[in-house]
């Protein structure tokens, strides 16, 4: 991140954007979560000084900002690595070995849950259902989905991200919705097509999303 922890976050374009967000709501306090997202996007985590800035913008106390931010799992109150790896171990993923997958990942990268690798690249967290149960087991890297993993694939995926960067790996291997097995004629006769999609790469390029 280009910002230092003490730099002011809400200046120039970001301040304008913050004001625009506040105007979307009849009561500007509703902008608190969106502004915390802006802060985290800019500074890498929810900084103390940034929370003070938000308090000033919204006319509430810094304690109210922290008291709200600390309720939500996405807001990180301490610096994290370059990438956040969120591994779902909820039931549908557990049934396909997600807890073994996660233990294996942590062992491979010699790191504990909620901790960052020594090189600062990955912070790991175990998360509740990521809403990709049709592609279990799954994980998210910076909230981008990767599905149909197994312990070996997951390690290899993260090594790939470390070597080649997230955007290119996600374009090749990530997904929007669970890609499902292609329908054979026999399957077609048995039921309608399942709804899902192929890899993100088929669609992301056309619409310019990464």
């Amino acid at each position: 991140m280009t910002l230092n922890a003490s730099d002011k976050v809400f200046v120039k374009e970001r301040l304008e954007r913050a004001r625009e967000i506040m105007l979307r709501y009849p009561d500007s306090r509703s902008a608190l979560l969106p502004l915390l997202h802006e802060l985290q996007d800019a500074a890498g985590y929810v900084t103390q000084s940034g929370m003070r800035e938000i308090a000033d913008l919204l006319g509430i106390t810094p304690a109210e900002v922290l008291g709200t931010a600390s309720f939500y799992t996405m807001f990180k109150l301490e610096p994290i690595g370059d990438h956040l790896v969120s591994v779902c171990t909820s039931l549908s993923c557990q049934l396909y070995g997600a807890d073994v997958l996660y233990r294996n990942l942590l062992a491979h990268f010699a790191v504990a849950n909620k901790k960052t690798t020594a090189d600062g690249v990955f912070t790991f967290e175990e998360v509740e259902c990521a809403a990709a149960c049709g592609g279990a087991p799954c994980l998210q890297i910076d909230y981008k989905y990767f599905e149909f993993l197994d312990p070996e694939k997951a390690v290899e995926l993260l090594e790939d991200v470390r070597n080649r960067g997230l955007s290119i790996v996600h374009e090749e291997r990530g997904s929007v919705n669970a890609p499902l097995p292609p329908l054979t004629p026999e399957e077609v006769s048995k039921g309608p097509a399942p709804v899902g999609s192929g890899p993100l790469s088929e669609t992301a390029r056309e619409e310019g999303h990464g």
């Binding site: 039931l91 549908s92 049934l95 149960c133 049709g134 592609g135 279990a136 919705n177 669970a178 499902l180 097995p181 399957e187 048995k190 039921g191 309608p192 399942p194 709804v195 899902g196």
Partner: peptide, 28 residues
């Protein structure tokens, strides 16, 4: 539909279908 079926996924079906049909026809 998720868990130990051959074809997990989202299926739009008419209410009133049985779980058996959901698992066998849609979940394969």
């Amino acid at each position: 539909l998720s868990g130990h079926v051959n074809r997990p996924g989202n299926y739009e079906i008419e209410l009133g279908t049985t779980f058996r049909e959901l698992f066998e026809r849609w979940g394969q």
